[in-house]
């Protein structure tokens, strides 16, 4: 491994100043993405600034808003009572991700910024990767693709954003709180991620050294039903082939509010507003579910190994909708 300096930040402002002022510096949270990529030779920072001792932990509820500090671990968030009661599909998504060992290390901020699992990105012996080196091409498009995106993808990049947690979070209109050299700002998660276009190396709106300090998550109204369905090749410890996060309010068999997002298929966590529009005001039933699924998966970009995901993603959403409405009065 490339030699690097390890710094333990003790003050938020200094951490930001250090990373913002040094192109060779990176934040280190749980390290479950960052250190892997360093060992694989994909990342080679000169300096790691450990943020896990900064006062950025803690979960606080303020009315209908949950404030989650960026260094809160996935397990801590999953164990939170408010999350269990008011955001059950977020809890499901957290607990279906990775393994308990990883979830005890992995942080919420780091989870949002986890890098794609694409093996062509993660292996520097592969020269064609637009995400690693802009303009170098995409080996995955002609390669062994399975865990890859079909939405927001193109010849330039089919790397999936693999976070489970981010799927319910985009459905919830969560907001990320950022602190940069020029101060604080808030960005809705749905605007935080950038589609790859022809610059897949630019994944989000963060400027150099900008730190995620917290995530603000609007709670679901008590009568909302929600579920997260993850379809994967093995029964645990595996990323999604497809997933669906669904939250609905039903009023006498008619769908009121609807929140829908898909995972495992998008280059970014995939909110599906068109599906929500189909569902809103429709009677809960197969017809609406199928129409929503059709509306959710539009203009997919597939390669040989990912073609099956078009149908699977639709069926996953239909199943999630059926599950979430089952037994409704």
């Amino acid at each position: 491994m490339h030699e690097f300096e390890y710094l333990r930040a003790d003050e938020v402002g200094r951490a930001v100043a250090t990373v913002a002022g040094d192109p060779g510096a990176s934040y280190l949270a749980g390290g479950t993405t960052q250190l892997d990529l360093m060992k694989d030779g994909v990342l080679a920072p000169d300096r790691l600034v450990d943020i896990t001792r900064l006062p950025l932990g803690g979960i606080a509820c303020d009315g209908d808003m949950l404030h989650v500090g960026a260094v809160t671990t996935m397990e801590e968030l999953a164990a939170d009572r408010t999350v269990a009661e008011r955001l059950p599909f977020l809890r499901q998504a957290l607990l279906l991700g990775a393994s308990v060992q990883l979830r005890n290390m992995a942080t919420i901020g780091g989870n949002l910024l986890q890098r794609t699992r694409c093996r062509y990105f993660r292996d520097p012996a592969v020269s064609a990767c637009n995400k690693r080196l802009r303009g170098s091409g995409c080996a995955a498009v002609h390669g062994a693709a399975r865990m890859h995106a079909i939405l927001g993808a193109s010849q330039h990049c089919i790397a999936v954003h693999a976070s489970d947690m981010a799927v319910p979070l985009v459905a919830l209109d969560a907001v990320v709180r950022l602190l940069g050299r020029h101060g604080e700002r808030s960005v809705p998660l749905t605007e935080f991620y950038l589609l790859p276009g022809d610059t897949p190396d630019v994944e989000n709106v963060l400027s150099r050294g900008e730190l995620i300090t917290a995530v603000e998550i609007p709670l679901l109204a008590p009568e909302t039903r929600s579920t997260y369905l993850k379809v994967r090749d093995r029964a645990s410890y595996e990323f999604a082939l497809t997933s669906a996060a669904v939250a609905l309010r039903l009023d006498g068999g008619v769908i009121g509010e609807a929140r829908v997002a898909l995972g495992g298929v998008g280059t970014v966590p995939w909110r599906a507003p068109a599906a929500e529009a189909v569902l809103r005001g429709a009677p809960a039933g197969e017809e609406a579910f199928t129409a929503a699924a059709e509306a959710a998966v539009v203009d997919p970009f597939t390669v040989e190994g990912t073609a099956f995901k078009v149908e699977l993603a639709k069926r996953t959403l239909v199943r999630a909708l059926r599950t979430v409405t089952a037994g409704a009065p």
Partner: peptide, 9 residues
């Protein structure tokens, strides 16, 4: 990337 069974399987 190379999947072997886990306990849950």
């Amino acid at each position: 990337d190379y999947l072997i069974p886990v306990n849950a399987d």
